[in-house]
Design a protein around this nucleic acid. Structure first.
Lengths: 339, 339
DNA sequence: CTATACTGCGCACACGTGTACGCAAACAAG
DNA sequence: CTTGTTTGCGTACACGTGTGCGCAGTATAG
């Protein structure tokens, strides 16, 4: 009943050899007779031996694992990135440790400490704020770090990022081409660099088209509630300040767009007839919402895979510690019916 | 530049003691003078020592980690469960290994093998099929296994499950109470036990109300596309077989419901006026969809936490290997506008 | 002042695996 | 037949931590 773990020593005893010989046989290294090797492999398979990666990691100083830190998995944006990371890791025989950091900065530190204790070979961090001392801590642990959609300077900091500016530029250009003239932007107060880039593109595209980039409002976060609050904000501003409603609204992301549309609809405003609305990301539901969302598709899963691929490159090539890797990825415009 | 990892031996040397003394000092065990202990702790903090959980795991035979296997993270259902599992694990100083099994059975085996090699203390499996030989393999590795929304017999198999039958019963009862009489069910061909339970509840509720439980159709999977295909299927059956449209449709889950509604709308059918539609799960978007979905809220995050809590109980209490744990959780009816 | 108990630590070993080195036997070359 | 080379392993140690045991010194009891 109490199955004792089998080790290479057990195999060694059964095969009548020493345990280093077993180690070499299993890894296909060293010199030995074909007969011995075959015998060892047979025995290993018979008794159902599974190597202990933890013991191996102890001696090789490589755990073959990476830590993945994310603010919140329940967010479809992050979970798709995680899926991409995991797929690529699994393909290359790496395992990933999961940790959610929520919004608590103290928790981020704790998470990093724990990864460090687990001796992960690298760290992938998605959409964190990585501010101040946190970045300092990351420096000290001396392992490669790949940031996804986050910017930070540092010796072993590398990044995979999406071209938010280019994407938003395209999206706004599409609205301009479609004849919209009063184009507002709904931002996210908690968004960091991504918000800034998209907003900048919105302003630039309008200026370039000779249109005013003045109608700007914000929601408290990038979720549905954020879109709801943001849209209420917009309606108020339109009435009190702008004089009239915009004819198009560029939202920070799809989720906010959906929240915003629910408010517009409650006000009796039709989308896109009374106001066109665009999202960003192309989350799954975007295609099935009413109206189906015109948006910018961000290749989230591919970004996750790219981050892991970059990590593996960093772990394989030992010496290139000085060169900073940066991989910018591009999405595509998805025109549906909301704009 | 090349920061060598610091170990308790380094601390021992600096403090002028042996490394076992350092080990005991850090863990607050053993007998030693307050002076020595304080000195060791100070030095450890000064040089930024982080214990190696992998070395510790090797000797204690406890990795303080559990494996989490899920078919696909991108699915909001699973990602919320994962979030719950992770939250509770983090609270209790456990780490979790992530692995997605996709739909490939060979991959499931590979994932389990890998967890085994990592010497995880336990395994949490969410919504797998766990069929045949796979269950056998799980038996052999001799560690506790907690299944979420999956049923399987076995020595160290335990489960956290949602009361699908009760939930669906409530939901259908709500429709009956609201006056609907021709109530159809849209199932998922890939759903396993969950589909079966919900469908059985649908049939039972109708029979109990003296209504016919005949209008049954299926989609190929539980996602948006599954709902789309299922609704097309329904329209065809209604025309060719049932004679007329049902006045209400109970869908396997929210995602399918959204897919189905998009088809109904394209046919000029209003929800709930021409046909009421219910979902299941209460995913985030359900409240913001048009019409907002009447559904059954499944406490996904709490289920994840419960699974991890159960796992910790199993790991703490050594001897109770014979008692099988089963934790059934209940959701709640959420009435919005779609039914 | 001796017998006993307790304090504060070190020694030796264990966990499961990888690897540098060396040594005997077999083989090849002269 | 000697000398060098290759083959096929074993020996010894390492990785970083935990733990049972024992031993010298000190405090306590009688």
């Amino acid at each position: 009943m109490n199955k004792k773990r089998v080790s290479i020593k057990d195999i060694a005893e059964l095969a009548g050899v020493s345990h280093p010989t077993v180690s070499r046989a299993l890894r296909g290294e060293g010199r030995m007779s074909d007969d011995t090797r075959a015998r060892i492999l047979t025995i290993a398979a018979d008794i159902g031996y599974t190597p202990s990666l933890i013991a191996r990691g102890l001696v090789t100083q490589r755990s073959h694992s990476v830590g993945l830190a994310v603010t919140n998995f329940a967010d479809p944006f992050h979970s798709e990135i995680a899926q991409g990371v995991e797929e690529e890791a699994q393909r290359r025989q790496y395992s990933i440790y999961l940790a959610s950091t929520t919004v608590d900065p103290a928790r981020e530190l704790e998470v990093v400490r724990n990864f460090q204790a687990r001796r992960v070979d690298g760290l992938i961090v998605s959409s964190s704020r990585v501010g101040g001392q946190y970045a300092g801590l990351l420096q000290e642990i001396g392992i490669p770090i790949v940031l996804i959609n986050t910017h930070a300077e540092g010796d072993n900091m590398h990044m995979v990022a999406h071209d938010d500016y280019g994407g938003a530029l395209n999206l706004v250009q599409h609205l301009v081409d479609a004849g919209y003239r009063r184009i507002a932007f709904l931002g996210n107060q908690r968004g960091g660099k991504a918000v800034h880039e998209r907003q900048r593109a919105w302003a630039d595209a309008l200026v370039q088209a000779g249109l005013p980039a003045e109608m700007l409002c914000f929601g408290p976060n990038g979720r549905f509630e954020g879109g709801v609050a943001g849209a209420r904000n917009l309606l108020k501003l339109a009435e009190e300040t702008w004089g009239s409603l915009p004819d198009a609204l560029v939202c920070y992301n799809d989720t906010m767009a959906i929240g915003a549309i629910s408010v517009l609809r409650a006000q009796g405003l039709g989308v896109p007839d009374d106001m066109a609305v665009t999202g960003f990301d192309d989350v799954d539901v975007a295609a099935y919402f009413e109206p189906p969302l015109t948006t910018w598709r961000q290749p989230r899963r591919a970004m996750g895979r790219a981050a892991m691929t970059m990590m593996l490159e960093l772990l394989d090539g030992e010496t290139n510690g000085t060169h900073r890797h940066v991989h910018v990825m591009h999405g595509e415009l998805v025109v549906r019916r909301s704009a």
